[in-house]
Design a binder for these strands. Sequence first.
DNA 1: GCTCAACCATCACAATATCTGATATTTATT
DNA 2: AATAAATATCAGATATTGTGATGGTTGAGC
Lengths: 293, 293
Amino acid sequence: MYSLDHLRMLVETVETGSFSACARKIGKVQSAVSQGIASLEIDMNLELFDRTTRKPTLTPEGEYVLEFARTILRQVDDLQLATASMTIGEEMRVCLAVDRAFELPRLQQLYRDFSNKYPNTELEVLSVASPDIYDLVKSGRANVGLTFAKLDIDKDVELCGIGNMPFIAVCATDHPLAQKQKIFMHDVIPYRQLLLRGASGFELGHFPKMSTLAWYSNDIHRLYSMLISGCGWAYIPAYVAEGWISKGKIERMDVLFDHKPWSPPVEIVSPKASIGPVTAWVIEELKSLFDND
Amino acid sequence: MYSLDHLRMLVETVETGSFSACARKIGKVQSAVSQGIASLEIDMNLELFDRTTRKPTLTPEGEYVLEFARTILRQVDDLQLATASMTIGEEMRVCLAVDRAFELPRLQQLYRDFSNKYPNTELEVLSVASPDIYDLVKSGRANVGLTFAKLDIDKDVELCGIGNMPFIAVCATDHPLAQKQKIFMHDVIPYRQLLLRGASGFELGHFPKMSTLAWYSNDIHRLYSMLISGCGWAYIPAYVAEGWISKGKIERMDVLFDHKPWSPPVEIVSPKASIGPVTAWVIEELKSLFDND
DNA sequence: GCTCAACCATCACAATATCTGATATTTATT
DNA sequence: AATAAATATCAGATATTGTGATGGTTGAGC
């Protein structure tokens, strides 16, 4: 049965162009590679290289096998990285950074599934502001992020849009705006708008500030307190609003300026390289987050 | 450096619950497994199993490594299958089955990219009717399929929806319906409708037959001939219609009964297991087929 | 058409790695 | 306490892989 070294020889030979060059690169002697490839061909019962030309060229079969070998070795390299970082003490755990606004029931489902599927892997969930998430992933502090999409693309991280999160405008039932029907843009401007904003200070481009006066919080629950005490109105995720409205102190505003709910895009942020299988699983799960809502 | 056998021991030990059972299963002696796991732990510089209990249990590190090992071995098994089928003569090629209605420019781009990326792998493109595609993939005759979505789900194949293909109603410029503006449902009923249908005989649920009289063809080009000779009207993919309309003999009908174009969902069909890397690449490419149209 | 450098295949032998079977020890169960 | 089933360890057997030497082939440059 062939080994990883054999596959490495195949890949390296293609990469360097010759058995000798491959041998030099992997620190062995030419005949070792020659025999290695030969035994690989015997094991697979296939001719991988055409040796009639000066430099060995891949046969169609070889071409096909090469792709498998590449994928396998990439995984092995990732495992290598993972074990290396584990021995130097970095505990293996998965850290998921999500925007504070996401407290979806589906996320709780994900926690449950995670604990069943990977009972021994630690899960850390950081609840932070969207703009901070990119840095957390970039620095390696977090393995995956779930954020409102930035407008500019970031070349250091992998991004994957997964849908939109509808926001609606709400205010307290005793707020002047709650009485009004068919609210125009100019109607809300005089009233204080309550906005979500990251601790880092700046807000997201997707969150439109419409009123001239604004109050901020980095915590959506604090926003609730501010709302019911009549401090102003706010745009909040529709699924949060539902819960609040059912409590009877908050009402949906009948705004005319967006007839379909305003829905900023949501994306998954992951590092460019070396994603472990557990993180990969989390990413796959996150992808279906908005599938049937 | 550890080998595939070592990883296999790890996985099999977890699966069976003990080193001995693992040894029995993989046809070796207990001490071989014991030593194998030990050397794996030395190579990785990690403790994978906790031996204080009766049966060895995975440490958190082991749990983590296990996932990698599983993925790697799955790939190796796939490679095994691929090489086996290649030696018994099944030429390694990728066979893509697409519905006859798809002749998208983006598909031609895919052919070009394929020939660059995998110059030695054969590509076969079968142009067939959507309902036949499921069987082609199921039987292994085709590796991937691109079809209009069936309404019932099929448990034997993997399905992945990728978007919708807009259809519009057209007829010849000299057809009575071309003269009319604001065509109602009852206007089209008396005229012959030209429909796409698979050779297997049955049509897709997504293709609404509205007229009482219908003519069928399994070939969209034949439909064109029928259309320009004034035989009737038809629903055809919008991108096909564009080309035909620009030739001047076909016109878009001003139908009122669907104000947004009728767009059946399109999905990728792939086998449940053992997808080779080239096929995987094709699937990834197909997924973005409708992304920016 | 000759030379030369770089390449590949093959072989016998050396070096490693892996497997075996025996043995001692541990652990949960009766 | 006795038992059954597991694990660790060790020395020797076996198999795999690597080495270095040798000879043959290829293609570029003259």
